[in-house]
Simulated assay, not measured.
Amino acid sequence: MTLLLDGQKVRGKGLKVSASLRIESDDMSGQTSNTDAAHKGFKPKALTVSLMIPFVDAADLKQLMSMAEATANGGQRRVYRIVNDTAATFGVRQVEFSDNLTAREDDSLAAWRVQFTLTEKLSTAERVETRRPSNPVKQQSAPGQPVASAAATAAGNDQGTAAQPAELTGFEAVLKRLDDSLA
């Protein structure tokens, strides 16, 4: 198995690549035994790489470290095009180093056990999400007519002019006549 990042081979022995896809969801059952869950999307795929680099090949570890520390314009982590069978099977084309890169000495061999994580960049789900048209924001309004402001009503009363009466329903008209006769 080989692993190429921008055409540069990651050198080491016993190279193993494992891939994972995290599917984010939240439990919606509350205090019940319901099994409903809220789908929160697909997170970027991650490739965990483990290999062994002999002490005599220290330059290979230095090269791997420099690739992990590389930055692009603006100080962003560098994005690499990846060539690997597992990555291709998962549909991963571009990756960047993430989480940890660890190198520990092996107990019995004169070598480092190296492990690091590559996270997918510009995933298929991310590209689909950016192409999807956004939902336009709709202005909300309540049914009925707007109520006149208190200041306008007070100004009308101060001038001695009566405010324009609003249209009354049949029942309201009966109540108004009753109120007027009692007054």
Rank of each mutant, 00 (worst) to 15 (best):
G74R: 08
Q139N: 12
D179H: 07
T161F: 14
A111K: 04
R177N: 14
S134C: 04
E24M: 04
D60T: 00
Q140P: 04
G170Y: 12
E172D: 14
V147H: 08
A110S: 13
K121H: 12
K62R: 10
L3S: 05
A163R: 13
A125R: 03
L21P: 06
T102E: 12
P165W: 06
G91F: 05
G7K: 02
Y80Q: 04
R132I: 01
T48P: 01
L15T: 02
K40W: 03
L178T: 05
G74E: 10
V56I: 02
V10A: 12
L118R: 02
L118S: 03
T2W: 02
A111G: 10
D106F: 02
S149E: 13
V147Y: 05
N34R: 09
V137W: 03
D6G: 04
D180F: 04
V17N: 09
A183V: 00
S66W: 09
T102C: 05
F97H: 06
S29V: 00
M28H: 04
P54D: 09
F97R: 06
Q145K: 11
A111V: 01
R127K: 11
Q140G: 14
T117I: 01
A183D: 13
A163L: 13
D36I: 00
K13P: 01
S66P: 02
T130N: 14
P44S: 10
G170P: 02
L178F: 06
G41K: 06
Y80R: 02
A151Y: 13
A142C: 07
T102Q: 11
Q94G: 06
S149W: 01
T153I: 02
S20T: 02
A142G: 08
A58Q: 11
D107G: 13
D57P: 00
A173K: 12
Q31C: 03
F116V: 00
R77K: 06
N34T: 00
A70E: 15
K121R: 15
D27C: 08
N100F: 05
T48G: 04
A88H: 07
R78Q: 15
T89N: 14
R81W: 05
R104C: 06
V83C: 13
V137G: 08
N100H: 07
V83F: 09
G91H: 09
K62M: 12
T124G: 05
S25P: 03
R77P: 12
R81P: 01
V79K: 10
E126H: 03
D107R: 11
F171I: 01
E126C: 01
V79N: 09
R81Q: 15
A87I: 01
E69R: 12
